[in-house]
Simulated scan of single mutants.
Amino acid sequence: MKTTGLNFRHLYFFWVVAKEGGVTRAAERLGLAVQTISSQLALLEQAVGKSLLAPQGRRLVPTEAGRMALGYADQIFLLGEQLQDALIETDAEKMRLTVGISDSLPKLIAYRLLEATRTLPVQVKLACYEHEFESLLADLAMHKLDVVLTDRSVRAGASLRVFSHLLGESAMKLFGVAALAERYRDGFPGSLNGAPLLLPTRNNALRGRIDEWLVQHGVRPDVVGEFEDNAMLNTFGRNGLGLFFAPAALESDIKEQFNAELVGDVPELREQFYAISAERKIKHPAVEAILATVHKGLFAVASRD
């Protein structure tokens, strides 16, 4: 078997120096002599045949080659930490589930989906990361994540080998704080002309359907805010900046947590929820638990709305 000849101890020293911005701080962090760090950095640069760090003022910063090496080092040492955690959890009879959560997915939906993992006989340790959809797919393809929870499927012909699993869908409802709900409830949806409305940004899977619904009903609200992050949108809605859409499946939670009231039902407007995996068949027991229970609970009710 061919080996790279790369000394990972040297690579680790480079990684720490790049993160700390200098050899002295890296040596303090590692409890080693400055000369030790410097000599092993030199050996690494000699092995790869490129300069990886360059002075910039009082700091050392990665060169172009160094930035590339740093990206790989980030992945290598992150996986190393995850390996250690996984081995420890194996001894403790725990199961780890690393989940990517799309920033457009309602956080209450994410919680309801992950709640299904509590039904397993073994304790599940969740590691949840929120990011943009495309970034999460890249991490999934590199096996940094076990599953991605999101509100959209992977488009046909995508270059990444990942697979969409429809969990369910929910009709939508429009909510607002008491004063706004009382003002715009009568005559809904015609009452929405000029109403302050909070919407997801146009790269959100739901936004196009909302715009189409508004056109179909001939109403022109005042869009006072657009948000990529669903939690931020709901926060502004809770504080009375405008009306906001939310899944019917979450109606009781929206009323309780956001002190919001129902303005109107929008049954023809539906939001879908997906689990994205790196394999065509789900094999992780915790993800299987989500798939097995979700249709009997949250979405089984919402789909009839």
Rank of each mutant, 00 (worst) to 15 (best):
L32F: 09
I88Y: 05
L70K: 06
D74A: 01
R96D: 01
E93R: 14
R29M: 10
T90M: 10
R25T: 10
T3C: 02
Q56E: 15
P62I: 08
F8S: 06
T63C: 11
A69S: 10
M1D: 03
F8T: 13
L60V: 05
I101K: 01
Q82G: 01
G66E: 02
A42Q: 10
L78I: 12
L79G: 13
A73Y: 03
V61W: 04
A18D: 09
W15N: 11
V48K: 03
L32T: 04
T36S: 14
E45S: 07
G80Y: 06
T63N: 09
Q56I: 12
F77W: 04
E81M: 07
T36A: 12
E20A: 13
R59F: 12
S102G: 13
L11I: 05
G66Y: 04
V17R: 11
K50H: 14
I76C: 02
L53W: 10
L97Y: 02
A47Y: 02
G71V: 02
G31E: 08
R25A: 13
Q46R: 11
R96S: 09
E28Y: 10
G100E: 03
R67F: 00
T24V: 14
I37V: 08
T98N: 04
T63K: 06
T24L: 09
Q84M: 14
P62A: 12
A27L: 05
R9C: 07
Y72Q: 03
E45R: 09
G66D: 04
L83H: 15
R58E: 15
A18T: 15
K94H: 10
Q35N: 14
L11F: 06
A54D: 04
L79D: 14
Q46M: 03
L78W: 09
K94Y: 04
L60G: 03
V17H: 08
Q56A: 15
V17Y: 06
G57N: 05
E45D: 08
L6S: 05
M95P: 00
Y12N: 07
F8L: 14
G100K: 00
Y72M: 06
P62L: 11
A47T: 15
K19V: 05
V16L: 10
L79Y: 06
K19F: 12
T3L: 04
T36R: 15
L52E: 11
A54L: 11
K19A: 15
E20G: 00
L30S: 07
F14Y: 14
A27V: 06
Q84P: 00
R29V: 15
Q75R: 12
A65K: 00
L41N: 02
R25H: 10
A65W: 11
A26F: 11
H10K: 08
L11Q: 04
G57D: 03
V16K: 15
T98A: 09
L32D: 01
G49P: 01
A33H: 13
L70E: 08
L79S: 15
A92S: 13
K50D: 09
P62M: 11
E28W: 07
V48S: 01
L70D: 00
L52D: 08
E93Y: 07
L53V: 10
P62C: 09
A69F: 14
K94F: 02
M95N: 06
Q56D: 08
G5K: 12
S51L: 12
L41I: 07
K2W: 07
M1T: 06
L79A: 15
I88H: 05
T90F: 02
G66S: 03
Q56H: 14
I88C: 03
A42Y: 08
